[in-house]
Design a binder for these strands. Structure first.
Lengths: 132, 132
DNA sequence: GCTATTAGTTTCCTCAAGGAAACTGGTTTC
DNA sequence: GAAACCAGTTTCCTTGAGGAAACTAATAGC
């Protein structure tokens, strides 16, 4: 019938020789996007780092320890992190009510991530300082 | 003269017993902030991951490989990354001009950071999928 | 001369991030 | 009953992140 069909189909597109490894790369790139969706922004990593390095804290403690953050932002970010099951919010029956924020076991799996981030950051500071 | 001055000064503030470790914690928290300033946002990590996992690329290649990004954003993000010395921009004297983007040796020190991020992201996907 | 490709830039737009300050509501202390 | 502390919420505002589409400029092939 139509013998022109075949050659044209074969020449238009170059086949991906290494499709399997390409899929794996794409999965990694997607994973990178996922993490940044959860951790991106000015405050989340800082809040996690404070809780991770200084231990559980109440709302007012966090407000004082996460330098520069305001009550509204803190409230919102804590909520986000709670939804992503990275920390828990526990209301304590104290005289003036207090709320304890703590990193969950799942949140603690972020420790290596934060640590790698932090150690790169510490080196980066030095690198930049030396140049200027 | 005024013997009321001393007692009041001594009782107002509690001293920080462990000031040295506290300073170190604060340095870490600052470092975390630094890194996020450089890598935060929707695209930077994705661009770095693409270049890291797929190798050098030209502008148009990146436009096709970083899914969803537009020319303006790509241009701006590449510029930012170049300023932070994480990648280089090389104009090649080809017929229609091409520009090669490559991760610098310094940018390559981000590899462990990206890898940790990615491996947490991959696990996170599984964790979330299982629940819903 | 028309179209295509590369590497952007420019313009105009929207929506979300983030911030300051005032306010709520309950409790304790003086 | 006034002041203070905790844990927020609400309101109003500004800035910046990000996006779509059109445009520039150079070159090559048809």
């Amino acid at each position: 019938m139509n013998d022109l069909l075949l050659p044209e189909n074969l020449t238009t597109k170059r086949l991906d020789i290494n499709e399997k490894s390409c899929q794996e790369q794409n999965r990694k790139i997607l994973a990178a996007r996922d993490v940044m969706e959860i951790l991106s922004g000015k405050w989340k990593i800082q809040i996690l780092a404070v809780l991770m390095y200084k231990g559980n804290m109440r709302f007012m403690d966090l407000l004082r320890n996460v330098h520069g953050i305001g009550a509204k932002m803190l409230s919102k970010e804590l909520h986000d992190l709670e939804i992503n099951q990275l920390l828990t919010r526990t209301v304590l029956p104290t005289k003036p009510i207090t709320v304890d924020y703590a990193i969950t076991p799942y949140g603690k799996t972020l420790r290596p991530v934060i640590n790698t981030l932090v150690s790169w950051g510490l080196t980066h500071r030095k690198t930049i300082m030396q140049q200027d």
